[in-house]
């Protein structure tokens, strides 16, 4: 029997119904229409379906839709600020950090979680931080560079924000 689930998805209150054994990945894609959540494996091995659940980075294929009741869900669709792309999105484009692009939403979400936890990661920390996301096209080189560049830009911005703050 279907269940009714109430969640906050990308900042908005959303009600959806799903089967009790349906994954959150399937519910987001097929019930809510967020197709930026990609299925690469369905077993938590590729990271293409990465989302944030109450802020925690998770594979939505390993979460039941029912578990999202009362929780906050964030997907790639909610990443940009209106028409303003997130720095990570811009840097992925500038560095050609995507080829086929199907892993990209998952990488962006994972990279965002990584930079929130560690705003100045080393190359090794980026590589381990993104190890849950498979990319078969790029060899990861340009992805790592895009994240490095995004971190630099974000730190510069938050620094200048702080400076302006002090002036006030």
């Amino acid at each position: 029997m279907s269940m009714v689930v109430n969640s906050t998805i990308n900042g908005d209150p959303i009600e959806f119904s799903c089967e009790p054994d349906e994954t959150l990945m399937d519910a987001l894609r097929n019930r809510v229409g967020l197709k930026g959540v990609k299925e690469g494996c369905g077993t938590g091995d590729c990271g293409a379906c990465s989302i944030r659940l109450d802020g925690a980075l998770v594979c939505s294929c390993l979460v039941l839709g029912a578990e999202a009741e009362g929780r906050k869900v964030d997907t790639v669709e909610g990443m940009s600020d209106g028409a303003q792309l997130h720095v990570l999105q811009t840097k992925f484009l500038e560095h050609a950090a995507l080829q086929c692009g199907v892993c990209t939403p998952g990488f962006l979400i994972a990279a965002q979680a990584l930079l929130e936890k560690n705003p100045t990661p080393s190359e090794e920390e980026i590589r381990y931080g993104l190890a849950g996301n498979l990319c078969r096209c790029t060899g990861y080189d340009k992805i790592v560079r895009a994240v490095q560049d995004a971190a630099k830009t974000m730190n510069k911005r938050s620094k200048s924000k702080k400076t302006t703050g002090r002036k006030k």
Partner: peptide, 9 residues
């Protein structure tokens, strides 16, 4: 155990 994604769960 697993990736950062798995660690969260």
């Amino acid at each position: 155990i697993g990736s950062d994604q798995i660690q969260g769960r």
